[in-house]
């Protein structure tokens, strides 16, 4: 590995934000995730990258506490995860907002749990502030169904922002968006991540998106889901889209693709090996 791919630790303290230890998860006896060990430093931006069905969404749900692992444990800021917590905000691919509430009401509902000490008036003001930060100042009283997919995702990000969670989990939040909105929202995410600095775990199947956003890319292979490689992204910040044209970026993309190809090849060989063994017996 060349020196170019080594970067400084994400935070000077290097404290652990999320720690996944020897995690296994099965769904109806079919293994979905095996032997997952993953450390995310406090304030680090990590992308989980992998093809559909590799269990990256499952891993994110486990970190969120929406599902519980069969074996192994997940720690967030030192304590084991027992269920969902306001400490970890989540943005889903879509459907993060309740369609019967306006954008502001959606955020106010979130605030009623995360900031119970404040009154309604304060919550409404704060909801408007959060919406303004993601460029939705004008749409506070709109219902989600009247908004575009991009605006709905901005709303979902605003809600996560309002919760003030130190950890932000995002499950392919821009998977359904067109390239232009996608690019805009990637920058919104980077901005939200930076101040105040949060730990982010971001699930995507888009290599360029992962490299543009992350400090570190964790590659997951499928059947069953497992970590095949971790790559520290060597690019400094702030990043611009000029990055996509650089030779280094191209090389890194190529390297990631190569890892996935190799993994698929190994899987196929392993499977046919088993078949051959069965035929002999």
């Amino acid at each position: 590995m060349s020196a170019a791919f080594v970067s400084e630790p994400a935070t000077p303290q290097g404290r652990l934000g999320i720690e996944v230890q020897a995690l296994q998860f099965a769904y109806n006896d079919a293994p979905v995730l095996v032997d997952i060990n993953l450390n995310v430093a406090e304030g680090e931006f990590v992308c989980l990258l992998g093809p559909s069905g590799c269990g990256k969404t499952t891993l994110l749900r486990l970190i969120a506490g929406l599902d519980l692992p069969a074996t192994g444990a997940i720690f967030c800021n030192g304590s084991a995860i027992q269920g969902p917590s306001l400490e970890r905000g989540v943005v889903f691919q879509n459907y993060s907002l309740f369609p019967w509430l306006t954008l502001a009401q959606n955020i106010e509902l979130a605030l009623s749990k995360s900031h119970p000490q404040h009154d309604k008036h304060w919550r409404h003001k704060y909801a408007e502030d959060c919406l303004a930060r993601v460029g939705l100042a004008e749409s506070a009283s709109q219902y989600p169904s009247l908004l575009s997919g991009g605006m709905q995702q901005r709303g979902a990000i605003a809600r996560a922002l309002a919760l003030g969670s130190p950890v932000l989990l995002m499950d392919e939040p821009f998977g359904a968006l067109d390239p232009i909105n996608r690019a805009k929202l990637q920058d919104v995410v980077l901005e939200v991540w930076a101040k105040p600095r949060k730990t982010v775990v971001f699930v995507t199947h888009d290599v360029e998106e992962a490299l543009y956003l992350a400090d570190r890319v964790v590659m997951l292979g499928s059947s069953p889901g497992r970590i095949i490689q971790e790559i520290v992204v060597p690019f400094g910040r702030p990043r611009s889209r000029q990055l996509f044209k650089s030779r280094e970026f191209g090389v890194l993309c190529e390297r990631i693709d190569e890892h996935f190809r190799e993994d698929i090849l190994q899987r196929i060989e392993a499977d046919s090996g088993i078949d051959a063994y069965r035929e002999v017996n």
């Binding site: 969902p84 905000g89 989540v90 309740f98 509902l109 979130a110 995360s114 919760l163």
Partner: peptide, 29 residues
């Protein structure tokens, strides 16, 4: 009730009565 409504309610830490009143009731309308 669609799973994503439950997930969202749990992420926001809603209590059972709030969950019934603000999520399940409107979703079931």
């Amino acid at each position: 009730l669609p799973q994503h409504y439950r997930d969202n309610a749990r992420i926001l830490g809603l209590e059972k009565t709030e969950y019934l009143r603000r999520v399940v009731f409107p979703a079931t309308l």
